[in-house]
Design a protein around this nucleic acid. Structure first.
Lengths: 219, 219
DNA sequence: AACACAATTTTTGTATCCAAATTGCGGTTC
DNA sequence: GAACCGCAATTTGGATACAAAAATTGTGTT
């Protein structure tokens, strides 16, 4: 990755660390987050740990009952459906605005990004494609030229991150995802808002379907 | 008002208090939020005050630079435009889903709520209409039957609250707003998603225009 | 008189300490 | 033997104490 911003505060530092562990999967949904043990692990006191946990609660990755501690947000099928539903709308809006507002230069960089993924697709490099996928979507959030919308999309993306890895194991999912990205890209390059929005919504809907499939298998 | 939930934690308590002061206008955009003086005012220590401020930072009502304290989010025209833009899309989506998903009972209550506002409109009761407006929009957020979307809409509504009061002073704005609500309600009762979404977006766009008008006057 | 540097002061970030609440275990009683 | 009440232990919420960083002010020099 590249998140080398070196946070100015310890709380932010360990927030990123915990978030990373949730994304990576070492902290599974439902895991309890004990303030004291986390403080010990990071060599800090409970205060910055508490702040970090609060941040994660607000981002939706962690839930916390008043006097009962914090746990990584458990997998709730109903909530997941709602998240995917909103995500498809928000990303669709990003794509719509991006089609209208991205500069030729931005569109060029997006196209390069996408083209650079061919090798990842053919090598079936899951981790590599995961990073590309994130970068591609992020570029479109930026392309909306609306910071509020972009932050919303990023927040939703992060909330879904712990579950998103499931669906990338689906057979031939990389090829499908790559092709769908291509459709979105083409619509953006053609400056066709309706088509871009529709293509992006379809892309997200497929992801939701695959996720639902996985959930139904696991239960 | 009516928010009588009696929060279980002091931090949540003063978060609501500070938020209320921002909404009401006694804490103006740009005002510095000093932890110590706030703690003294509420008779608490800095710890819950810090938590409350973190909550507000996350909701977007307050901005905070790393070692430089927190201030009520200043009025930034560019950011405001973006907020209204996203708000119109999100509320439009709420109306769309509401048209599809609200039960006859829910639609009935929404209609009653709206009908009960006639007296407020004719009396030009600003505070009363402000409360009705909030309740009307909130009912539609609920009507989307999507908790994620509803929370997003509520968060955006809160972020715009400090500025919303400006536009209600606009001449004949109550009548216009009430009529637009009527159009949204009719579309929802007719279970017409496209029309509901369009009517709601128009309602929000008008608000944005009036706000922009005020901003241009003030600058 | 103006600019620059340094010290002081103010304020935030972190650590430690205390209180309050929930949970689990054990004993007692029906 | 089972259920209920109560106590203790663990854990979170809040308070206080300490450290570090930034802003301001004052002084000295140019």
């Amino acid at each position: 990755m590249n998140e080398q911003k070196r946070p100015a505060t310890r709380a932010e530092e360990i927030r990123q660390a915990i978030e990373g562990e949730i994304f990576q999967g070492s902290l599974r949904p439902g895991s309890r987050l004990d303030e004291e043990s986390l403080a010990a692990r990071f060599g800090l006191s409970r205060t910055p740990v508490r702040e970090a946990i609060l941040q994660l609660v607000h981002s939706g990755l962690v839930v916390k009952k008043p006097r009962q501690g914090a746990v990584v947000a458990p997998l709730d099928l109903h909530r997941m459906v709602q998240l995917f539903e909103v995500m498809s709308e928000i990303e669709g809006l990003c794509a719509r605005y991006a089609a209208r507002r991205m500069s030729p230069d931005e569109k060029g960089r997006l196209a390069e990004l996408h083209a650079g993924g061919v090798s990842l697709r053919e090598a079936h490099d899951l981790d590599g494609y995961y990073a590309l996928n994130r970068a591609f979507h992020d570029a479109i959030y930026d392309g909306s030229h609306n910071d509020v919308l972009r932050e919303m999309a990023r927040s939703l993306f992060a909330r879904l991150a712990p579950y998103r890895r499931y669906q990338l194991n689906h057979p031939r999912r990389i090829e499908g995802s790559y092709a769908e990205h291509g459709e979105v890209l083409a619509a953006i390059q053609a400056a066709d808002p309706d088509q871009a929005q529709a293509a992006m919504r379809k892309h997200l809907t497929i992801q939701a379907d695959i996720f639902a499939e996985f959930v139904s298998i696991m239960s």
